[in-house]
């Protein structure tokens, strides 16, 4: 089993990766910090599991080389579990990439990162309902303080592929 960290640039994937694996990947406050993938390991139920920090990408149609690396990574790791890291304060466009990944049939789990920023901006997200609609785990996180990371780890096994039809049905007319 492998875990891919995918998401837009600058949403905190590398912070997440460092927390999960104890690595020292560079984290900075600008999009495009990570331009190559890094592999690391974390222990889950006494097993070593490979985790991959991927460059940020806005969609699965790459527009630069760093995004190409990300999209290629996703294509190569056909049976990976994808942790979609979303900037909760920009949830709508984050869902765009997430839906694209779901449509490709990957098992997905969503981390609503930057939950603190979303709170500051008075954005309220009904996490329970979002889980029900998307049929995958959705967990608010603050990667820099570590909040929610444990829950993400413990729910990774709940990640599963979802049919887009179901999501359309769940959300209703």
């Amino acid at each position: 089993m492998k875990i891919l960290l995918m998401g837009h640039p600058n949403v905190g994937k590398s912070v997440f990766f460092n927390r999960l694996t104890g690595s020292n990947v560079i984290e900075s406050n600008y999009p495009g910090t990570t331009v190559d993938y890094t592999k690391g390991y974390m222990v889950l139920e006494n097993r070593d599991i490979e985790v991959i920090d991927v460059p940020g990408t806005f969609s699965l149609e790459p527009k630069d080389k760093a995004e190409e690396v990300a999209v290629k990574m996703l294509e190569e790791e056909k049976d990976a579990i994808v942790v979609c890291v979303i900037d909760a304060s920009k949830i709508e466009r984050g869902l765009y990439l997430t839906l694209e990944i779901i449509e490709k049939g990957y098992p997905v789990i969503i981390a609503l990162n930057m939950w603190d920023v979303a709170k500051d901006k008075n954005i309220e997200i009904d996490v329970k309902n979002l889980e029900k609609i998307l049929e995958v785990p959705v967990i608010p996180t603050v990667a820099i303080s570590g909040e929610g990371i444990k829950e993400v780890v413990s729910r990774i096994k709940e990640a599963k592929p979802v049919k887009i039809k179901n999501i359309i049905k769940n959300v209703g007319g």
């Binding site: 709508e92 765009y96 954005i123 997200i125 009904d126 996490v127 979002l130 609609i133």
Partner: peptide, 23 residues
């Protein structure tokens, strides 16, 4: 989905789950 279909779906999801307060 096409780009527009995907965005439509997101708009619907967002309407049900996200409340943008006064910023």
């Amino acid at each position: 989905l096409s780009i527009d279909e995907r965005w439509d779906l997101i708009d619907k999801i967002s309407k049900k789950t996200v409340k943008f307060g006064k910023y």
